[in-house]
Design a protein around this nucleic acid. Structure first.
Lengths: 257, 257
DNA sequence: ATTATATTGTGTCATGTTGACGCAATGAAA
DNA sequence: TTTCATTGCGTCAACATGACACAATATAAT
């Protein structure tokens, strides 16, 4: 399917397939080289960067739509996606936004076409292991790349606002939920976990106090192995105790009341 | 406007006014007699209890729609509503749900009518001062009443699930956000605040430790006055220090990382 | 009027958590 | 063999938390 065929099908049939006025957008965080990354797409027809997003089929749960959209656009499967906010302001409505680019492609649609209407979007975010991702493009996507969170380009519509809100939510959750599974390799070292926290929070932490606190959560298992081939003293390897990790997810880490 | 006229107008014109497939629902918590209450409506045309909810005008921000819906249905104004979750599962779609009751009223609509379509709803919640609310009905609402949170009746569609999620969110927020403003009178006593926390959490707390902890947050001002006309030793009156309260809202109460 | 009782204000003490930092062990690099 | 960045483990003071004692106060009971 060529680009214009794909767009044509969407334009012709979209209103029959999808719920009108509603979309989903995914903020996918990854961690690499001590930097927090976010996965962005460059849309062929818009020629702009944006979050992986799409529409919800008329008989499809919204959560499933988010999963599917992500899989379609990035090849990522079975990611734990978490809904974090729904964006329903008027500022995210730019009637000429799609129209400009459709016209460039010589496509004309009526002014009341569903694609040109106002959309409310449900935001999802996920943390994934960088190494397991092989960003892939499709007919509608020109590029799919990891961007350093500090260097994201200008994004379409209000996607920067969505990204910021996701990051803010992630930092909040760090205070009462365990983080790291799905984001780090199966086996990892304490300095790596520390670096992850420091990167997300954009803040330096005392490594000794960090280790004490995180070990007290009881969600880590120290392995007998030791990381090899590294300079200086070799650190222990750890892995998450999934049972305790899951429990901590539901109960929370801090005591509270 | 009679009941049927009101419904008629909604059925005729709704699709021109509102965003399709999208609604908002409000969970309004109140506190009275040491019990946590929730505000429920009994819909005239459905003859069932449910959360105050409604639709979003095509040129209206979703947050504003929630405010408006609440004001229209309950008379409540300027409530701090907080979005907490968007419900987009298929289980909340019951095509015959509205149709059954429309038929009872002798109203027939086409099977592809917008009211019969699947809806995704954005959930909002608020905490309000019980005494300031005068629940009021309108043409579409037969009753508007406070219900004890433990005794809510059977609710329409998935409104029970929405209510539960709101309560769960509220309990979570208790751990890292100040609560009580808008929910208690201007001046209140420490035992009253304690009771509020105990009621929300459905759990007994040690009054002395509670007082120490909550005072350390620095969001309360002890007044010189003392509650009068009560049995036993008269307690001090407190009020929230709004500046510090607002700051705590944004920064959070617990240190975290 | 005196006493009993429920409730509130304040404080103590043991325990647990946090922030700041010291120091020896390790292993690649000089 | 020495150097040195890094890791593992530990110390200590400050602060927070859970459990509980006791005196002060205002109504209710006698």
């Amino acid at each position: 399917m060529t680009k214009n065929e794909a767009i044509g099908a969407l334009i012709e049939e979209g209103q029959n397939w999808f719920l009108p006025s509603l979309s989903v957008d995914c903020v996918i965080f990854g961690f690499h080289d001590g930097e927090l990354k976010v996965l962005l797409l460059k849309h062929r027809h818009l020629n702009m960067w944006g979050l992986p997003g799409g529409f919800v089929y008329k008989d499809e749960p919204a959560d499933v739509a988010a999963q599917r959209v992500l899989q379609e656009r990035t090849g990522l499967q079975e990611i734990f996606l978490q809904q974090f906010h729904t964006f329903g302001d008027m500022e995210r409505y730019d009637k000429e936004f799609h129209n400009r680019d459709l016209k460039k492609d010589g496509i004309t649609v009526q002014s009341d076409h569903w694609l040109l209407q106002r959309f409310v979007t449900i935001g999802y975010y996920a943390l994934v292991e960088f190494s397991k991702v092989s960003p892939s493009e499709d007919t509608l996507t020109e590029k799919c790349l990891w961007w350093d969170i500090r260097k994201v380009p200008s994004l379409m519509l209000d996607h920067k606002k969505i990204l910021d809100k996701a990051l803010q939510t992630l930092r909040m959750q760090l205070n009462y939920q365990p983080i790291g599974y799905n984001l780090l390799p199966e086996k990892f070292t304490m300095p790596e976990l520390l670096k992850l926290y420091e990167t997300i929070l954009d803040k330096k932490l005392d490594r000794r106090n960090f280790q004490r606190k995180i070990l007290n959560y009881g969600i880590l298992r120290r392995l007998k192995e030791i990381k090899k081939g590294v300079a200086h003293k070799a650190p222990y390897l750890y892995s998450f105790d999934l049972n305790r990790y899951q429990e901590a997810l539901s109960v929370g880490l801090q005591g509270g009341w």
